[in-house]
Every structure is written in C-alpha cells, then in structure tokens.
Amino acid sequence: MLYEYGHIGILVIIALVFPLGALVTSWAFQYVKIRPTSQPDPVRDDIYECGLRTEGPSLVQFNFRYYYIALLFVLFDVEVIFLFPWARVFDKVGWQGYFEGMAFIGILSLGILYAWRKRALEWKL
C-alpha cells in the first residue's frame, strides 16, 4: 500500500518541476532576446485600477458575512468526515447503525435550519 503512496510522492516532484520549468523558461527568454526586457516605468509598475491611480490602501475591509459562511463550512465539513467512515462500513452496522446515521444527519439538518432561521444565509439584513 505504501508502495502506491511513494508513487504519488514522485509525482509531487514532477508536478513541482512542470510549472517551475514553464516560469523559468519564460524568465530565461528575456536574456536570449526572445522576450522584451522589462524597463522600469512608474505607470506600468502601478497596480491596475481601470486606468486611474489607486486611492488608499488596497487591502480593504470586506463583508463580515463571509465569516458566517466560513463558520458554517467548518461545521459541515467536519461532520462529513464522520459520515464517510459510516458509509464505508454500511453493510456491517445494520439497522442500528442506519438509525444512528440518520439521527446524525437529522441533527445536521436542524443546524442548517437554525442558521436559516437566524438569517445567517442572507446577504441583506
């Protein structure tokens, strides 16, 4: 089994070499006069904002509702991790395990209903 994971490890190295190769090739082209060399220029080095100079800091505040979404995601994704082993041994747990799993999913549904009622899924208050 570990034999197979080792192959994935080798693939990680290949996957690292591939984008690095592309970036390095592109970078090296400017020294063999295939690609134009970047000349420093205040307008071109500025960040792009539809042609105007940028105003204020760029890392601005964003909507706090993203945090609600992130919290709900953590909640549900962790629960899913518990459900996959349950699905894997489904034939061994019998009706008892079935009802336990259903109760788990029922509590999960109550969670989403609560978030829904509390308007955590709305983007306007």
Binding site: I47, S58, A70, F73, D77
Partner: peptide, 23 residues
C-alpha cells in the same frame, strides 16, 4: 498578494463560493 482591490474581492468571492459548494 497582488495588492489590488479587485484581486482581493475576487479572492474573497472565490473562497466563499468554493467552501459553500464544497459541502
């Protein structure tokens, strides 16, 4: 990393959407 408002908005949107649809 781009230090651009549009980039930041796009990044926030993609993270929110990707984690919403992951579930």
């Amino acid at each position: 990393s781009a230090n651009n408002k549009y980039s930041l908005f796009g990044a926030m949107r993609i993270v929110a959407m990707a984690i919403s649809y992951e579930v």
